[in-house]
């Protein structure tokens, strides 16, 4: 049988008494663009954080390319390199220039040669339109620009899958587009992604699969995103999508 890129088996996640994910299952194949939507607090961020082993889990397994990823395992660094993550809050390293933000992990973690990574970094920064800002510090950039750098910083590690958690939620509306366009071009080039977003038009445009979550459970799943957004099958998804209309 073919090995899934990401496989989540019976994942249990709770914060103390508060159960967030209960026996959660999911398979993601190479090239999938999985959009995860659902009401606030339903566990979307928690799910992504578990996949990147930023959270302790209470049960189940998360496999990347068939290998388990776990917070306390010895191979955690290797496993995390397979999973890129961009968060909602701009999380660039404020004491490093844009270029050094991008170079830090490939040089220190992957032990790549500086001039080789630098070439790639500049290429990637060029693709998101920021090569000329390489010597600036994060504070000199707009929110949208910072998020584009954060994407580059994740991409340069050549992850198998990229996790994006509401990466435009903290941005001014006019900056949302420039970031989402980068994500769309990644999808076109075949990147595997899991995207949490509240931008429904974007979700519809980019998804190859949609997961609608409520209380940590998949309420509706669709491999036909266009159809899902036009006429969801469940009442709860219908109600949720309605809340985005005016």
């Amino acid at each position: 049988m073919k090995q899934s890129l990401l496989e989540i088996k019976h994942l249990n996640k709770a914060y103390g008494e508060n159960i967030i994910l209960k026996s959660f299952n999911l398979k993601v194949e190479k090239g999938d663009v999985v959009v995860v939507i659902g009401p606030s607090g339903c566990g979307k961020s928690t799910l992504l954080r578990c996949i990147n082993a930023l959270e302790d889990i209470q049960g189940g397994e998360i496999l990347i390319g068939g290998e388990p990823i776990s917070r306390n395992a010895k191979n955690i660094s290797t496993m995390r390199q397979k999973v890129g993550m961009v968060f909602q809050s701009y999380d660039l390293f404020p004491h490093k220039t844009i270029l050094d933000n991008v170079l830090l992990a490939p040089i220190k973690v992957q032990k790549r040669k500086r001039n080789e990574v630098e070439k790639e970094a500049l290429e990637l920064l060029g693709k998101v339109g920021l090569a000329d800002r390489k010597n600036d510090y994060p504070r000199q950039l707009s929110g949208g620009q910072k998020q584009r750098v954060a994407i580059v910083r994740a991409l340069i590690m050549h992850p198998d899958i990229l996790l994006l958690d509401e990466i435009t939620a903290a941005l001014d509306p006019e900056m949302v587009r420039e970031v989402l366009e980068v994500v769309i071009s990644l999808a076109k080039s075949g990147s595997t992604m899991m995207i949490v977003t509240h931008e429904m038009a974007f979700a519809k445009a980019i998804a190859t699969r949609v997961l609608f979550l409520e209380n940590g459970e998949i309420v509706e799943e669709s491999k036909e995103p266009k159809a899902f957004f036009e006429s969801p099958q469940t009442e709860r998804a219908k109600k949720f999508l309605k809340s985005f209309e005016y």
Binding site: N52, L54, S77, T78, R80, Q81, V83, G84, M85, F87, S89, D91, F93, H95, L104, A105, K108, V109, Q110, A150, R153, A154, M157
Partner: peptide, 23 residues
């Protein structure tokens, strides 16, 4: 979030401390 983003890039705890947190 600073240590989380460093760790999500595969940095170890000590690398995160040395290159991200301490400076």
């Amino acid at each position: 979030i600073q240590s989380e983003s460093a760790e999500s890039l595969g940095m170890s705890k000590s690398q995160t401390f040395r290159y991200v947190i301490f400076p």
